[in-house]
Write a protein that binds this DNA or RNA. Structure first.
Length: 162
DNA sequence: CCCTAGCGGTGCT
DNA sequence: AGCACCGCTAGGG
């Protein structure tokens, strides 16, 4: 596993990679002083992915199209993997409600569980959990902080209440 | 706005 | 098995 610091205009993200791809992306935390990377020496593939992610994150907050690196989500439960797959099918600028996502995976009563799965999403932005809103376009929650959810939605031109 | 009942997955005991 | 969380929702005051 390799940890890579990803400086952007909005702070320093941290990306964790396996040899298969991006496992986890952390938003900048206020106390994040050092932008040091750690772990095994990054392979050229990891360095390439890190560069791609840096571009993607800067693009995402500008509302520009961005590429997605290979993802390694092997630690999800079957339900979570279903939800995360479904989230990746929401086009940029569109939103779904937690309920609609639950219906799309054919578990119409699982809106609340979908919320929990969104909260467990290890790769925000690339698995676009920010495009999931509560009923009636209310913004709902976001584990990494509501400011990020608002920023990403506004950048994409999506409309929401809150 | 608030409150309540009902909901399904997950993790801990 | 039980239980307490949750990025939820619909309905009613």
């Amino acid at each position: 596993m390799t940890v890579f610091a990803i400086p952007t205009a909005n702070g320093c993200f941290r990306a964790e990679f396996s040899e298969r791809g991006l496992c986890r992306l952390r938003f900048p935390c206020p106390k994040d002083t050092t932008g040091e990377s750690s772990g095994s020496t990054p392979s050229s593939a990891v360095q390439e992915w890190a560069g791609l992610i840096q571009c993607a994150l800067n693009a995402a907050v500008q509302g520009e199209p961005f590429a997605t690196p290979p993802l390694d989500l092997q630690f999800g439960t079957p339900f979570q993997l279903n939800v995360w797959d479904e989230l990746r099918r929401i086009p940029t600028g569109q939103t779904r409600s937690y309920r609609e996502v639950a219906e799309a995976i054919e578990q119409p009563g699982a809106a609340r569980a979908v919320g929990a799965a969104c909260g467990a999403n290890p790769v925000p932005v690339f698995v676009p959990c920010h495009r999931v809103l509560a009923a009636h376009h209310r913004i709902g929650g976001f584990s990494a902080g509501m400011k990020w959810k608002r920023l990403l939605l506004q950048a994409e031109g999506a409309n929401f209440i809150g």
